[in-house]
């Protein structure tokens, strides 16, 4: 008998350990959930950590209002199955009430507007720990982030002043008003996530698989047409066989041309691809080379 774990089992065990540690040491944790594959895997890991108990904290969705309808339908169904309480922080509501202002121009991104809504929800519910599905392989600034990422009263991340993190001993001590962002899947890669989804038969929204969709080509990406997307003068909608590698706002998340309509095909595609998921499909990360670093300092996920 050899006592070895497969890489997925080892990653899973590490994540479960982190979920349990946070549930033990914090008073008001919440799980940030977007309906994307990473947060879906997080939800599964949280279920596993506390089985046969229910997940002992609520789920927080910062809703930009520019969602794929398939994702919202999936969110509600899945959370009902798990029996988790959903808290929604709505960007749309705050735009309607005048607290937030939509960016100028056609098809504005609401990416920046998520941060104030998130921070407001944290204050309102007095969350002291927020689970996020960020992975260190996603981006260079994230490669330096701790599993327990300390945030001050303003929700800010200070990359030069992070707490050392040793062994699996996480330091969750904070003062009132401060909080910790916790990233249980820090050590997973995009491929690990897909392999886990396959191994665990985790259900994910259908838009991750190849389908026919009406899109428009914008900044080299295929953006879905729909109620939030105003076509420019020279833009022409057409139907393409596509799938999504990431899920964000409908207005900034690009689809990739793909025939991968099964999990096996998706994994083969991911394993063979030469462009990172964010580089390929997220207009929000393209702004500058240090785009993510800047947003994180301000309190972004």
């Amino acid at each position: 008998m050899s006592y070895e774990l497969s890489h997925l089992r080892e990653l899973e065990a590490e994540s479960i350990h982190i979920f349990r540690e946070v549930a033990s040491e914090f008073e008001r944790p919440a799980l940030m959930f977007s309906g994307g594959k990473d947060s879906i895997v997080m939800l599964r890991l949280a279920e596993k950590a506390f089985y046969p108990c229910k997940i002992p904290f609520p789920v927080l969705h910062v809703d930009t209002g520019h969602n794929f309808p398939e994702v919202i339908e999936f969110r509600d169904r899945r959370l009902a199955e798990v029996g988790a309480r959903l808290i929604v922080g709505s960007v749309q509501e705050r735009i309607d009430s005048g607290q937030l202002k939509e960016e100028p121009g056609a098809n504005p991104s609401r990416n920046q507007l998520q941060t104030p809504v998130l921070l407001e929800s944290i204050e309102e519910y007095e969350f002291d720990a927020l689970f996020g599905g960020a992975r260190r392989d996603e981006e260079k600034a994230r490669a330096k982030e701790r599993v327990y990422s300390f945030r001050d009263d303003f929700g800010q991340w200070d990359p030069k002043n992070q707490r050392p993190e040793l062994w699996s001993l996480y330091n969750g001590r904070i003062r009132k008003g401060e909080h910790i962002r916790v990233f249980p899947i820090s050590n997973w890669t995009e491929l690990d996530i897909w392999q886990y989804i396959e191994a665990e038969k985790v259900e994910i929204p259908q838009i991750y698989y190849s389908h026919q969709r009406e899109v428009v080509e914008r900044d080299g990406m295929l953006i879905a047409t729909g109620p939030f997307n105003t076509l420019g003068e020279n833009e022409k909608a057409f139907t393409e066989t596509v799938r999504y590698r990431t899920i964000g706002c409908m207005t900034v998340t690009g689809a990739v041309e793909s025939d991968a309509d099964t999990i096996d095909k998706v994994i083969a595609e991911v394993a063979g691809t030469r462009i990172t998921e964010r580089g390929a499909t997220r207009a929000d990360d393209r702004v500058s080379e240090a785009a993510m670093e800047d947003r994180k300092k301000e309190g972004y996920f």
């Binding site: 890489h7 260190r136 392989d137 260079k140 600034a141 490669a143 330096k144 990359p159 030069k160 992070q162 820090s186 050590n187 890669t189 491929l191 240090a290 670093e293």
Partner: peptide, 22 residues
């Protein structure tokens, strides 16, 4: 691998960074 802006400017690595490959 030199991720943060300050590092790129100074040409040094200032913190632990985690990388992945398989």
């Amino acid at each position: 691998t030199d991720g943060l802006r300050a590092e790129r400017e100074q040409g040094i690595t200032i913190d632990v960074a985690y990388r992945y490959f398989a």
